[in-house]
Design a protein around this nucleic acid. Sequence first.
DNA 1: TAGTGTGAACTCTTTCACAGCT
DNA 2: AGCTGTGAAAGAGTTCACACTA
Lengths: 223, 223
Amino acid sequence: MMAESPRRGVPEATVGRLPGYLRALTGLADRGRSSVSSDELAELTGVRGAQVRKDLSSLGSHGVRGVGYDVTRLSDQIAAELGLLEERPVVIVGIGNLGRALASYSGLATRGFRVAALLDVDPEVVGTEVDGLVVRPLGDLGALAELLSPVAVGVIATPGAAAQDVADLLVEHGVRSILTFAPVVLRLPDAVHVRAVDLASELQILAFHEHQRELAGAGEDVG
Amino acid sequence: MMAESPRRGVPEATVGRLPGYLRALTGLADRGRSSVSSDELAELTGVRGAQVRKDLSSLGSHGVRGVGYDVTRLSDQIAAELGLLEERPVVIVGIGNLGRALASYSGLATRGFRVAALLDVDPEVVGTEVDGLVVRPLGDLGALAELLSPVAVGVIATPGAAAQDVADLLVEHGVRSILTFAPVVLRLPDAVHVRAVDLASELQILAFHEHQRELAGAGEDVG
DNA sequence: TAGTGTGAACTCTTTCACAGCT
DNA sequence: AGCTGTGAAAGAGTTCACACTA
């Protein structure tokens, strides 16, 4: 028989859940579990069982009927899918409190990444050491090419005003995936993947729901 | 005629974009602009024009045909929808680098929030001052009730191992909306709204796309 | 004329429900 | 007996395209 192609195109919504599955599987493996059912994995990650099965089947996964999924095998398969079999370098630009938080976050190392470089423009910050790494001037980016292979992911933790320039610079040096915390919309070539986390937006979304509840409460029967 | 109900139920996907619109509108207002078209707003926020119009119409908004939307009016309307007409208090638990980054983020104040309290368990950290606020012991939460009105939003910036306990404590004290940065799934009553931002997951999602590109590149014509 | 508001088509995602395997 | 894998149904979200109007 011919090798079946595991899948073509994992749906984006599924990709978004893979890290959660991987995290749960790592936890299970640490506790010595060797197999897990879709319902249990669902429980651990806060989704539905059917969802887990659909997601995993889109990876071409093979669970065992009547038993479940092999924890190690599935974990490896997801890690492979995410491209984490090899440690991926991360460059963090902007070493304020946020940049420092990211730089010293041990979860990066345990989940497939290596902080390869810390960059900043502030001469007060450049040269200081964070979690064993010396902060370099932004201009050094070009000199770091060999540290950034396989292609690094860029993290922007600068003030909003600097974010676009930093993003352009990263892209110039070959970065194609950027995680930004700056509250601005980055204009970049379509080929660059950007994920934006905006703290204030997250809070505003929560505020919306809070507000809706307040309205609902006010409108309800009194007494 | 009777007052038309502006809407019933704004779609969740729309809610997720409102903060972006609000940010763009604030920028336009600062630059003295008084009206804006859906296409321009779309351009500024990185979505499509039709999307903007659908979103705004679900708020019961009224743009002017041939002209566009009134910047101030629309901005106020979105702020109202998000419940930001009154400053909403935020409690931050876990004053490590990340908690400090959040505490000193000026974007909170400019976007409808007030950092009402900083809490931590570490005696080394309790009593220190961050951005003009003294860090209090976690146990003080009960004593802060008056600071936390209207109902506060809780932010969890603790290590994963502490997150569930902190979340339970927040909920006990009336918090119904939580933003967590801890890489764990929180088990809370359904009535509590939780948004989880997991840095490593974000990077893994980017890594997935990076990896796909590498596969595609390797499979392509060479030369 | 420029630009909104919106039904209708389309696409993506989730959920259901059950056949089929171990 | 238990649990996966998956078509089919249902539900969300997005995009199209155009009538309408200031």
